[in-house]
Amino acid sequence: MAEMRYREALNEALAEELERDPNVYLMGQDIGVFGGAFKVTEGLLERFGEKRVRDTPISENTIVGLGVGSAMTGLRPVIELMTINFSLLALDQIVNHAAHIRYMFGGQVSVPLVIRMPQGAGHQLGPTHSHSFEALYLHVPGLLVAAPSTPADAKGLLKTAIRDDNPVIFIEHETLYGQRGDVPAGPDFTVPFGQAAIRREGTDVTIIGISRMAITAGLAAEQLAGEHGIDAEVIDPRTLRPLDLDTILDSVRKTNRCVIVEEGWPHGGVGANLAALIQEQAFDYLDAPVGRVTGVDAPMPYAKNLEQISFPHEAEVIEAVLALFGERSVGLNG
C-alpha cells in the first residue's frame, strides 16, 4: 500500500501498462510536452518517447477515429480527451464506430480502445465545461463505462480498461484528481469490471453514488448515522457497464430503501435507469419509492451560488434519505 493522489494513481497505471505492453500508446491534446491539462500524464513523454506518448491537434472526432483504426489493427490506444465536454465532438466515432464496429462486422475485429476524460461541475466553468455524461455513454451497447471515485479504483480500473479488448469510456472527475488514498502496490494490481464496491455497510437504506457522488454519498452516510441514527449502506458501482446489479439488489433486499446519487441531469439519467431495474427486480422488497438525487434539470450556470445549488451535496442526499423514512431534516434545504 502506498498513499497517493488520484492523478498519481492514474499516472502509475499508464506507466505500468506502457511498460508491460509495447502496443499500448497514449494520444491526446497536450498530454506530452504540457504533461496533460490535469497533469495525469506528467513525465510519460520523457520516459516513453514521442512514438508512445503523442500530442495531437484539437480534432476530437478524428483522434478517436485514429484510435479506432489502430485498435482494429493490433494496437491498444489510450486516448485522453481533455474533458468529457469535448467528447461530444467525437460522438460519431465513439457511438457509430468504436461501439459498433465489432458487432456490425460480425465479430471479425475488436476495438481495444480506452477513452479517458474527466467530468464534473464546481469550477464555475459554465454550461459548456461542466458536464457529467455517465448516462450518455451508459446508453450505448458496445461500450464499457467505468467511473472510479478513489485513487485505488482509478489505478486498478484503468489497468483493467487497457487490458480489456472492448472500447472503454473511462470517466475521471475533475475535483478528484488531488484526492489522496491508499493504493495497493505492484504492477499486478487491477480492479475487475462489473464488481461494485460496498463503501460502508449498513442496514437501513442503500445509497448508490456514481463517480464523485460515491464520495458525497459516503459523507452523507456518516452524518445520517451521527445525527439521525440511520445506518446507510453505501455502494459505488465503479463500472456502469458491466453493472454489478447483484450487489445492488442484495443490498436493497436487505435495507428495503434506496437512494441513487449522480451529478448529471435527471431525465434519462443513471438513477432513472437504476431505479427502473431495482423496481423491476426487487419491487416486493421496497418500503418506499426509489429516491433520486441528481443535478438540476438546467444547463450549468456560471454564478457561484447558482452553480452550487445545481449539483448534489451531502445535504440533498440526507434530505432524500430522510424523505424515505417520512422525515425531514432540520436546517437544510427542506
Binding site: 479506432v68 483504426g69 489502430s70 493490433g74
Partner: peptide, 20 residues
C-alpha cells in the same frame, strides 16, 4: 455508413503500420 466516418479510421490503420 457514415459519410466521412472512415477517414480517421484509415489514418488509424496507417498509424498501426507506421508504429509496427
Amino acid at each position: 455508413g457514415i459519410v466521412g466516418g472512415n477517414l480517421p479510421i484509415a489514418a488509424g490503420f496507417g498509424l498501426t503500420s507506421d508504429y509496427l
